[in-house]
């Protein structure tokens, strides 16, 4: 990425989209569409991006967009790619954009089906850790202990965040990777790699949501960076479901998770024992990830 060469024309999204100020999802889509080039078709399932993309006749994306129902992201993507192939448009890259609801919960069956069939497209989940568009209801991507509108104080979100990357890796798909908005170069590199591979590719992007997380809109990048530094959201890629590799090295001595939690209103009322539980959960996941990474060497 050469910064001097970038300008409004080389981007694949337009200004004037409907994202909230400081939206991580808008940034994520900006980076990933830029990395994939102009020959692109986007499938949008019900999510924040259904709104961000704009009301007809306006569109925020410079490529064709196909809106589809909530549970069908995986299958509509499959259909679109096969349809394009049938029309002789094999070169077009198809990406499916889904939020965490459309990936972790409602969209999981069609996603799993498409992954199992090894459909030839890129599935991108931009994860803001709740149903932010409909009013901050918990999803299975919401971390343990967060406050949401379906788990208001004194309740807390129960159960740990679903490890979607392990689920996808278990499908043995050719490429799966995590990315986040504070590391645009890393994200673009992964998308470019994914573009070169055929078969089902899955990208999991952590995209901070200022209104949903209760943070300053200016903190988006800062939080995204902290999520990586604490080990809450490690950046890695998985090839063929077995080859695990870290892409942005995190110090073995990760900074305490509290640094990440303390800036967010959704964790503000979280008590110390719950913080400990979450920290232990992150530590355990980190260790198991490290084992997988080391076994792949």
């Amino acid at each position: 990425m050469k910064i001097d060469e970038l300008n409004r024309e080389s981007e694949m999204i337009y200004s004037g989209h409907n994202a909230c100020p400081g939206c991580g999802a808008a940034l994520a889509v900006r980076y990933l569409t830029r990395a994939l080039g102009t020959n692109l078709a986007v499938v949008l399932t019900a999510s924040c991006w259904s709104i961000i993309a704009g009301m007809p006749p306006f569109t925020a994306l410079k490529c064709p967009v196909l809106h589809c129902p909530f549970p069908s992201a995986g299958s509509v993507g499959s259909g679109l790619k096969r349809g394009l192939n049938a029309k002789g448009l094999q070169d077009t890259t198809v990406i499916v954009l889904a939020g965490d609801g459309g990936t972790f919960d409602i969209g999981l069956q069609s996603l799993s089906g498409a992954a199992q069939r090894n459909e030839d497209y890129i599935f991108v989940c931009y994860d803001n850790e709740a149903y932010m568009n409909t009013g901050m209801q918990s999803s299975s991507a919401t971390p343990y202990g967060a406050l949401t509108n379906t788990a208001p104080y004194p309740l807390f979100k129960e159960g740990q965040k679903k490890d979607i990357m392990q689920i996808m890796a278990a499908h043995g798909i050719p490429y799966a990777a995590t990315a986040t908005v504070a590391f645009p170069e890393d994200m673009e590199e992964k998308l470019k790699k994914a573009k070169e591979i055929s078969g089902f590719r899955f990208i999991h992007i952590l995209s901070p949501c200022p209104p949903g997380w209760g943070t300053e809109s200016s903190d988006t990048i800062h939080l995204s960076r902290l999520a990586v530094a604490t080990g809450f959201f490690p950046l890695y890629e998985v090839r063929n479901g077995v080859n695990w590799k870290m892409t942005v090295p995190t110090d073995e001595k990760r900074i305490p998770l509290n640094d990440y939690l303390s800036g967010q209103r959704r964790f503000k009322k979280m008590d110390e024992p719950r913080r400990q539980i979450l920290q232990k959960e992150i530590d355990r996941d980190w260790e198991s990830l490290m084992k997988r990474v080391n076994n792949s060497k």
Partner: peptide, 15 residues
Amino acid sequence: CGTEPSTANKTGEWR
């Protein structure tokens, strides 16, 4: 649908 760029939407007014 959606053929006009969203640049017509001057989001600077939100600021």
